[in-house]
Design a protein around this nucleic acid. Structure first.
Length: 311
RNA sequence: CGCGGGGUGGAGCAGUCCGGUAGCUCGCAAGGCUCAUAACCUUGAGGUCCCGGGUUCAAAUCCCGGCCCCGCAA
């Protein structure tokens, strides 16, 4: 079966890698255009683009998916199936209906729950014990298509979006290959999603990382894990950005204001929240290195009674 | 040329504006105290102050060039 692959980030590249080892030819790859990235705003190709280039597979990176030239290119590849993994764009009907087998999508949640752009982050943010991967047929409504296969994966207690995403990537890739096999021999029937169970996982915004210290310590701790690697949970110490990479919930008898430092010795930095306290474990001050808190405290004196606060 | 911060014994930092003895919290070593300890006390070792050039009687500090790291931005 001639396959065209659409995807952009690392997780998508993992799927493409597995596809390339499979029996079906990948006749073309579509990814998002190179974007200015990092310091100096240098343009860097996506992980999927790099992989396609190293395998000398025809590559397209259209600015707009409705671009007529691009659509012609896509048609000329004559795909029998289009595989979409974290491409990052909503596809128009013209593409969804372009190949005989339609578009097969790998989504990193247990659909119909967590439809949308950031399923993994929301799974962690909401304190779910299980997440997973689903393969489904793309339809015009976001992540609402009929389901082929699904696999549950349980979350570790210290799971971050980054760690869970990299755990899911190979599982999704294998699920994708199995789905394609079953599609070919007709041994799988897509099953409609239960709309009543649907929930949404919208894209995270930078500002969502700002910590509200009036929330419960447990909720903030989940936010810290969910916002790894982006956009990071953060607050401000003496007007400087303080990113929090790892923290644990601790119980305390102390009273004070949310965000207040209630313990600052050589090893511990505890912050009072709306309910319970948070022991910061790994943090990074603006322009500094990311450090275990004990190392951080050797160079930066923090006094009990200081407050972490919005800028 | 997107904006900004930084590179100082093994770790994390101060000192740089206003040139003149290299400092702090740790770690390490030795000794002491202790039933004992990651605790406490004393002493000690350990540094091309990122690299190169310049200014100066004198440069971690001022000037020029280079390398590396980080925050913003995505």
């Amino acid at each position: 079966m001639r396959i065209v692959f659409m995807g952009t980030p690392e997780a998508a590249a993992v799927s493409l890698e597995h596809l390339l080892k499979g029996p079906d030819p990948v006749v073309g790859v579509i990814t998002r255009p190179d974007r200015p990235f990092g310091r100096g705003q240098k343009s860097v190709p996506s992980p999927v683009a790099k992989l396609a280039q190293s395998h000398k597979i025809p590559l397209a990176a259209p600015q707009k998916v409705r671009d007529p030239g691009f659509l012609t290119t896509l048609k000329n590849w004559k795909p029998e199936l289009i595989v979409v993994v974290a491409y990052g764009r909503i596809l128009p009907a013209s593409i969804l209906e372009l190949s005989p087998q339609g578009c097969l999508n790998v989504h990193y949640s247990l659909l119909p729950r967590y439809r949308g752009a950031a399923p993994v982050a929301w799974t962690i943010l909401n304190g779910e014990e299980k997440g997973g991967v689903t393969t489904m047929r793309l339809v015009e409504k976001m992540d609402a298509g009929p389901i082929f296969l699904q696999e549950e994966v349980s979350l570790a207690p210290d799971e971050t979006t980054a760690s869970f995403q990299s755990k899911l990537a190979p599982i999704g890739a294998r699920l994708l290959l199995r789905t394609i096999e079953k599609l070919k021999d007709g041994s799988v029937q897509p099953e409609a999603q239960d709309e009543r169970e649907a929930s949404y996982a919208p894209m995270l915004k930078k500002e969502d990382g700002q910590i509200d210290w009036t929330l419960a310590a447990q909720a903030i701790e989940r936010q810290v894990r969910a916002f790894q690697p982006w956009p990071s949970a953060y607050s401000y110490l003496r007007g400087k950005l303080l990113k929090i990479y790892r923290a644990t919930v601790v119980s305390t008898e102390e009273h004070g204001l949310p965000g207040e430092v209630i313990r600052a010795d050589q090893e511990n930095l505890w912050i009072l929240t709306g309910q319970g306290a948070l022991s910061l474990e790994e943090i990074q001050l603006e322009n500094r290195k990311k450090l275990p808190v004990a190392e951080f405290l050797k160079g930066t004196r923090v006094e009990k009674g200081e407050r972490l606060s919005p800028g």
